[in-house]
Simulated assay, not measured.
Amino acid sequence: MTIRITLISPALNRSLREARFDEGSPLDPRGRACAESAAGSLGAADRVLVSPTARCRETASALGLAAVPEPELAGLDMGRWRGLTLDEVMAREPDAVLSWLSDRDAAPHGGESVGALCERAAGWLEETATFGGRTLAVVEQELVRALAVTILGAPGPAFWRLDVPPLTATDLSGQSGRWNLRLGRELGAEGR
């Protein structure tokens, strides 16, 4: 049986607009309006999950989804860097930033490493593959990247080379541990 998973990236909020490590800010009015305009474009799902972050929960709500929070779908824990831009952190801790960007197992911010995020995402995918039916999940962009790197067996640096725009769908389909990946489909753009 083919497993189908659709990952939806959240709408814009202050953190995304300002390229900040998310500090839990809500959707901004424009992000909410964009999500509301895409409501009804996702089709039926057998289960709907959501990351516990504010912007993912609010995106799911604006899309009209009755989603169940799933702790395993949380975004990357950025520790003491939460709320800061990469430039701000680079000015304060340049060696720590370079370590974080070059070593997937580094977590100089006191949070979670990219490697740990990828392992968590892989575990969630393995568990989800046992669920029959279509899963829809509203998740942070870095979780989409972690799953893409995992599915493709790509080297660690590939994580930094994937761009996941807001309010896009990434479709995973597969069986027996073999996955196909379709990245960055705009919501409501199934026929394009």
Rank of each mutant, 00 (worst) to 15 (best):
M78F: 13
R80F: 08
R82N: 02
G83A: 03
T85F: 02
D87I: 00
V89R: 01
P94S: 08
D95Q: 14
A96V: 06
V97Q: 03
S99R: 15
S99L: 12
L101R: 15
L101M: 15
R104G: 13
D105P: 00
D105W: 13
D105E: 15
A106K: 08
A106Q: 04
A107F: 06
P108S: 09
P108T: 10
P108C: 08
H109Y: 02
H109Q: 15
V114P: 04
G115Y: 08
G115F: 05
A116I: 04
C118S: 12
R120L: 08
R120C: 10
A122E: 13
G123L: 13
E127R: 15
E127T: 14
T128G: 00
T128A: 15
T128K: 01
A129K: 03
A129R: 13
T130D: 14
T130F: 01
T130K: 15
G132P: 11
G132L: 11
G133R: 07
R134F: 03
R134W: 03
V138E: 09
E140N: 11
E140Y: 00
V144C: 09
A146D: 05
L147H: 07
A148M: 06
A148L: 05
T150D: 10
T150L: 00
I151H: 04
L152M: 12
A154G: 09
A154L: 12
P155I: 01
G156K: 00
P157S: 10
A158W: 07
